[in-house]
Simulated scan of single mutants.
Amino acid sequence: MEIKERIIQGAGKLFFARGIKRVIMDEIASEAGVSKRTIYENFDDKTQLLKETLDYFQHEHDCNLKRMTEQADNVIEIIIGILHYGLESIKVVNPLFMEDLKKFYPNIWDESVRKSRESGQMELQRLLERGKREGLLRPDINPHLVARIFYEQITLIHNNEAFPIDEFPRKELFENIVLNFGRGISTPKGVEMLEKLLSDPDSGKNGPG
């Protein structure tokens, strides 16, 4: 593993666990097993390190989801996989990370949301078309519109004004969005398959990969 990647992975681990503002460069250096000087030889400052860390993990996220969609037998399996993958991610990412990102790095937040929305919506549209061909998703849905609605709902997970975290735990919120979405766009055959997979405690638990 290259030094730059080690730094990014170390920074990501600390940022996701504790938020951004609470993490100092000395701690990132210790986590990555490098000197602070080495960090500054590869990144201008903490802002650049944060930006490249987000780009790195977004790319990893996209690759994982692509691999999952290629390995799944049908779109319902993918919905279950997305559910478990998202729930595992919520366990890893401290809400303070999102709060810090929006508050202190609004430009990076906006760019991150835009990139995630663009790549995610395109992939979701393809999955919706696939599900219609498989007879598991309703033939009357508009994939472009439905994909947009889904990603706008997902973005709201991080809106503490709309969903205060002490009232709406992120795990429960994400689970409700994904399952209500999946049930709402599925045919009776798709809903039956969805409920069957949900009743299987081992279905999709490994998520992508």
Rank of each mutant, 00 (worst) to 15 (best):
residue 1 M to Q: 11
residue 2 E to R: 14
residue 3 I to P: 09
residue 4 K to S: 14
residue 5 E to K: 15
residue 5 E to G: 13
residue 5 E to P: 06
residue 5 E to L: 14
residue 6 R to E: 12
residue 7 I to Y: 04
residue 7 I to T: 14
residue 8 I to D: 00
residue 8 I to K: 11
residue 8 I to T: 12
residue 12 G to T: 14
residue 12 G to E: 13
residue 12 G to F: 15
residue 15 F to W: 10
residue 16 F to M: 10
residue 16 F to C: 02
residue 19 G to E: 00
residue 19 G to N: 00
residue 20 I to F: 03
residue 20 I to W: 02
residue 21 K to V: 10
residue 21 K to D: 01
residue 22 R to K: 08
residue 27 E to P: 12
residue 29 A to W: 02
residue 29 A to Y: 12
residue 31 E to A: 15
residue 31 E to T: 05
residue 32 A to P: 15
residue 34 V to T: 02
residue 34 V to G: 11
residue 35 S to P: 10
residue 36 K to R: 15
residue 36 K to M: 15
residue 37 R to V: 14
residue 39 I to L: 15
residue 44 D to M: 08
residue 45 D to G: 03
residue 47 T to Q: 14
residue 49 L to F: 15
residue 50 L to F: 14
residue 53 T to Y: 08
residue 55 D to M: 11
residue 55 D to W: 07
residue 56 Y to K: 12
residue 57 F to N: 07
residue 57 F to R: 06
residue 58 Q to H: 12
residue 59 H to A: 12
residue 59 H to C: 07
residue 70 E to D: 09
residue 71 Q to R: 06
residue 72 A to R: 07
residue 72 A to P: 04
residue 74 N to W: 00
residue 75 V to H: 04
residue 77 E to P: 10
residue 80 I to H: 06
residue 83 L to W: 04
residue 84 H to F: 05
residue 84 H to D: 05
residue 85 Y to E: 13
residue 89 S to I: 13
residue 94 N to I: 04
residue 96 L to C: 00
residue 99 E to I: 00
residue 99 E to S: 00
residue 100 D to Q: 00
residue 100 D to S: 02
residue 101 L to Y: 01
residue 102 K to S: 01
residue 103 K to D: 03
residue 105 Y to K: 02
residue 105 Y to R: 00
residue 107 N to W: 04
residue 108 I to C: 03
residue 109 W to P: 03
residue 110 D to N: 05
residue 117 R to E: 06
residue 117 R to M: 10
residue 119 S to F: 08
residue 119 S to T: 10
residue 120 G to L: 02
residue 120 G to P: 06
residue 122 M to C: 06
residue 122 M to I: 07
residue 123 E to R: 10
residue 124 L to Q: 08
residue 124 L to K: 09
residue 125 Q to Y: 08
residue 127 L to Y: 07
residue 127 L to K: 06
residue 128 L to Y: 12
residue 131 G to T: 02
residue 132 K to H: 07
residue 133 R to F: 09
residue 133 R to Y: 11
residue 139 P to E: 11
residue 141 I to A: 04
residue 141 I to E: 07
residue 141 I to Q: 09
residue 141 I to R: 09
residue 142 N to S: 08
residue 145 L to D: 10
residue 146 V to T: 07
residue 150 F to S: 08
residue 150 F to C: 07
residue 152 E to T: 08
residue 155 T to E: 11
residue 155 T to S: 10
residue 157 I to F: 07
residue 157 I to L: 08
residue 158 H to N: 02
residue 158 H to L: 01
residue 159 N to R: 01
residue 160 N to W: 01
residue 160 N to D: 00
residue 161 E to A: 03
residue 164 P to T: 02
residue 166 D to H: 11
residue 166 D to I: 00
residue 169 P to S: 06
residue 171 K to F: 05
residue 173 L to A: 04
residue 174 F to D: 01
residue 175 E to Q: 12
residue 176 N to I: 01
residue 177 I to W: 05
residue 179 L to E: 01
residue 179 L to W: 05
residue 179 L to P: 01
residue 180 N to W: 06
residue 180 N to L: 02
residue 182 G to A: 13
residue 188 P to H: 05
residue 191 V to N: 12
residue 193 M to H: 01
residue 194 L to N: 11
residue 195 E to T: 11
residue 197 L to S: 08
residue 197 L to M: 15
residue 199 S to Y: 05
residue 200 D to C: 10
residue 200 D to R: 04
residue 201 P to I: 03
residue 205 K to Y: 15
residue 208 P to E: 15
residue 208 P to M: 15
residue 209 G to M: 08
